[in-house]
Design a protein around this nucleic acid. Structure first.
Lengths: 131, 131, 131, 131
DNA sequence: GTGGTCTAGACCACA
DNA sequence: GTGGTCTAGACCACC
């Protein structure tokens, strides 16, 4: 079953974190067309947030064409996005985890790692945008 | 000169993006004690945002003890954080850039790469938290 | 200034009535790109409904690409739809008003007129769909 | 046999659409006292909706005094409403269909026509209410 | 039981 | 002052 996670410190609105996680799930193949998302009430209870917040996220997904509610049954993933092929995903994920281990071994904590990664990704995207 | 960058799509409040970037700069050694930050007006003009938003970011940095205004001269970085040693930083950064190239070569776009990275980092942090 | 109207008896959710009216305004040329919609608080006060309900409608319009919020300034119409040419509109509107007068003169009340119109439009659309 | 039609996009609750259509049928003479409505199962199967939804609509009609169940035989239209005289109805309907043709010929699609009609009817009713 | 709508009211980000 | 987010809680439509 798909599970959500929240990071209160990030400053990203709760409902957007939920939306992003479903989007990411689709992108990476964790979620596929037809999968049932946890119910609004389940998510609200698990994450200890207001059901309306979850409903707002699900509504956003619906408007984006990524989910569809079925009254009395739950909300289902629908449509899809360009998925990363499984083999590619496994290989890249493995490589990244290796790098992560190196970073931890070098004494970096999570914040420092995130800072490094974010800076590098931002640079990468900025260069691509400028090119 | 230190330069800010904004991502309107991220959902992170503008002023927080500015604060985070200074914090990241310190963590990674882009910014060191004594460096001068661009003026509120410069940042506001460059990013086309309201000066109040920049001022709020600088105020937050000040309260966090990471920056200090000097009357008539601008705002300066002060104090510091656990910095990543330069050698370590260079090695890790190089490794990460290599991985990024692999990801691009595999055909992933920026969104897919960010999705993969975020998912991996979140997993990593979640496991550490659970351990 | 654009003004909203509500029909509590229709069974259509309040926020959808608002969305539909903006859509209709665009279709008929009452609203054009750049027009400012009344603020959330104004609409809420005028119609005596909850500001959240108005905000929901405006958010829907935003997701549909028909409106854009500007913090501190209000919500603005943006983008557009296939508009009915003004001349065509005037001619057709005139014709319809004439028919309406005939219907009133024949003794029909609003409900009966709406019933007749709805039935006729539904038939028309059903035939087109079947064709 | 009386046939129901649904418009999922309208936002009007399913059961209300059914009730309204029977009401409209009575108003316009499509349905008269004694006519048999399709069974709950038939309607549910044809429209692919839950039988409970149909049952609720029939219950509402019953409470409004517009329909009555006869054990083992089905539900029948009963009582009546101010009907539009057949001659008047035919004349007005003919006129409206003529206008509709004009609108189609002018290049308007169904959405645009509905927008124009709704706007005109709403105006008409608002004026009457204000008078 | 599911999702959807609406209200009331607090607080935040931004101009 | 503008829109945005979140909470709390009632009620409805539909399965």
């Amino acid at each position: 079953m798909f599970a959500f996670r929240l990071d209160a410190r990030s400053g990203v609105p709760t409902y957007l974190q939920l939306v992003d996680q479903v989007r990411r799930g689709l992108l990476l193949g964790y979620l596929v067309d037809g999968d049932r998302l946890p119910t609004v009430r389940e998510v609200a209870a698990t994450l200890v947030i207001n059901p309306n917040t979850v409903a707002k996220a699900y509504r956003d997904l619906e408007r984006a064409g990524l989910a569809a509610p079925r009254a009395g049954q739950g909300t289902f993933v629908v449509g899809s996005v360009d998925q990363v092929p499984a083999a590619t995903y496994v290989k890249l994920s493995h490589g990244l985890r290796g790098w992560l281990r190196t970073a931890h071994d070098a004494g970096l904590d999570h914040d420092q790692i995130r800072a490094l990664v974010t800076a590098t990704l931002d640079d990468d995207q900025a260069q691509a945008g400028a090119a």
